[in-house]
């Protein structure tokens, strides 16, 4: 069963992303563990929120392009994701808890990937 781990960082409107105390080494170690465990399907870290652009297409086909992402009003910002393949939700929750993104005020949302 595939689960997406949506890694959210706490965000301050004034100062940008709030560090959660994790180091690059923490992330590299986690990434290596996920890949060594044979559960890695895909995953990426996203560039800074200021680089985000939002597109909306209206009923007449007109494009609206904004740089205020849909995250502007929230206190948490998507910073990256993993898709992992594990037997059940308990295992997925364990991997989410080991992810540095869930520490120090950050959070990881676990969403099952729909199967058709």
């Amino acid at each position: 069963m595939k689960y997406m781990l949506l890694i959210n960082a706490a965000m301050d409107d004034e100062t940008g992303p709030v560090g959660n105390g994790c180091t690059v080494e923490d992330w590299m170690a986690y990434d290596k563990t996920v890949k060594d465990a044979g559960i890695f399907v895909t995953g990426h870290s996203l560039a800074d929120l200021v680089t985000a652009t939002t597109v909306r297409v209206g009923p007449g086909g007109e494009r609206t392009i904004t740089t205020d992402g849909p995250f502007a009003e929230t206190r948490e910002v998507l910073g990256g994701y993993y898709v992992i393949d594990v037997p059940d939700l308990d295992v997925a929750l364990d991997w989410a808890a080991r992810c540095p993104g869930s520490w120090g005020g950050g959070s990881v949302v676990v969403r099952p990937v729909a199967e058709f």
């Binding site: 069963m1 037997p87 059940d88 939700l89 308990d90 676990v110 099952p112 729909a114």
Partner: peptide
Amino acid sequence: REARIPFRVP
């Protein structure tokens, strides 16, 4: 069912 919460004792 859909998030596959397992049927097991922790």
